[in-house]
Amino acid sequence: MRLHLLALLAKEPAHGYELKQALEQTFGSAYPSPNIGQIYVTLGRLEKDGLIRAVDVEQSNRPNKKVYYLTAKGRDVLTLWVDEPTEGPRVRDEFFMKLVLAPLTGIADRMALINRQRRHYLSLMGDLNALLDETEPDDRVATLLIEGAMLHLQADLEWLERCQEDLA
């Protein structure tokens, strides 16, 4: 979440709760609602690393509020993050490890493992279908996130089919 917060602060200085709201508004229904405690912990670390600085703002009859500003160092880190290519998902799949190793233990056979996993993926897909149904079509960011998750699941299912053809 460090870099997401830096990106939001590059747009304008903000306090913790505003950052939480900005994340929710940008990503819509598809984003796991960010925990305010986690946001403050992350901001504390970013400040310690010199990537942001906090300015106390006095409030009448309430404790001071901290507004966070991106530092030059923070901007450099953010630029590096935006400019470098992003790693794609790797096949270091926990299920695949089970599939290869579990039959050695005699606990489960591969066919049963694959079948159970397929049902699980399809159940996740059902959830994504329901989520997409509830999402406003013009909420482009949320829609694209859900579609991305669906395409990954589709690939997982196709790979499962390949495993079943070759291993089971």
Partner: peptide, 21 residues
């Protein structure tokens, strides 16, 4: 037929449980 079974409906209701960002 190598598998024949029901697909569970979890319906967690919260998006965060579906998408791990």
């Amino acid at each position: 037929i190598v598998d024949d079974g029901r697909i569970a409906r979890r319906r967690t209701g919260t998006a965060g449980a579906v998408i791990d960002l």
